[in-house]
Design a protein around this nucleic acid. Sequence first.
DNA 1: TGACGATGTATCGGGCCGATACATCGTGCG
DNA 2: CGCACGATGTATCGGCCCGATACATCGTCA
Lengths: 184, 184
Amino acid sequence: MHGYELRKELATKLGTIRAAISYGTLYPTLKRLQTAGWIGAAETPDSEIIPPLTSRRGRVVYKITAEGKERFADLLAQAGPETYDDAGFGVHFAFFSRTDRATRLRILEGRRRRIEERREGLRDVLARASDRLDAYTLELQRHGLDACEREVRWLEELITNERSGRSPAGDTPPEDPRPHQDRP
Amino acid sequence: MHGYELRKELATKLGTIRAAISYGTLYPTLKRLQTAGWIGAAETPDSEIIPPLTSRRGRVVYKITAEGKERFADLLAQAGPETYDDAGFGVHFAFFSRTDRATRLRILEGRRRRIEERREGLRDVLARASDRLDAYTLELQRHGLDACEREVRWLEELITNERSGRSPAGDTPPEDPRPHQDRP
DNA sequence: TGACGATGTATCGGGCCGATACATCGTGCG
DNA sequence: CGCACGATGTATCGGCCCGATACATCGTCA
């Protein structure tokens, strides 16, 4: 894909997780990835055979390299504290079909622990500081607590499915070189 | 309050909205606010009458100025596109008891419109691109869509309450100079 | 007495965003 | 027919914010 297309694709894939990546991040990052050798760049798509009549706009098409695929798989499989953040977890989850079941379970459980901690913190606040906070702030905490409880239930459902083999993807992720299509 | 205390207080007040503000933001921002004249600084709290035996740690206590209160009220009352972001809306909502009903309604309705747009975008993706995305990505979209629908219902409840006068706060916000207590 | 965690102020490098610039393409409208 | 406008596309810049780090004090517990 070229940059603009990748941006749109990511925005769709990540949905509510985060807004579209900015141009100030997109293009410098593509250059860094190219310098690192994880992606390769070509000036024009292969399908573009007929020479342009007018001077063609510079359109750079990127493609992941073998080394890039390895690094990407490593990144998806590794789980640290930032993996359980809202942003980090969302990105990992969006690419779950590229990981194995053990990794998925590890990340889902880490995320659940993180949300449970947040939930306990909110319950603490509501129990201890409810007389110190105004009604709107309390309503905000209640709403946040409700969201935590819902997410924990969602995560537990996903964990149960993974354990029982009813997960959306099998254990071995499909090698899928085609863009625009994650699962045929 | 001093910086460290303010940081904790904000973290409690904002709850799930965002993590605690970083030190790299906190202290430079306090300086900027002081330079702008919106807050004043004193080396030691007034209650600290007894001179310290050992050399006392530098502890700066800040207090909002009259000009700062004006600017703060302005900031809370103004509503732009970033007011309806997750972060912006959360901050505004956490200080709703400092605003009037008209402002609250304007912000709640703007936020609702924003979430409705996001909801429609997600429905579009689920309707149009469901065959192009893998099962985990679809699950992510469904979860996000569910969160949108819940938030819209929550906002509508709040809007109804505001309109009918059953809002948590009255129309005139209380002038409350005491720290640690938003509503007695 | 000494370790440890909470309290407290402060800075630095790096990453990301919003704004902006510039150019092409397709489409619809007068 | 021309032209405006929005989508497509690449690129850069200033500024804000975060994570890491440094340094020091305080209370507590072993």
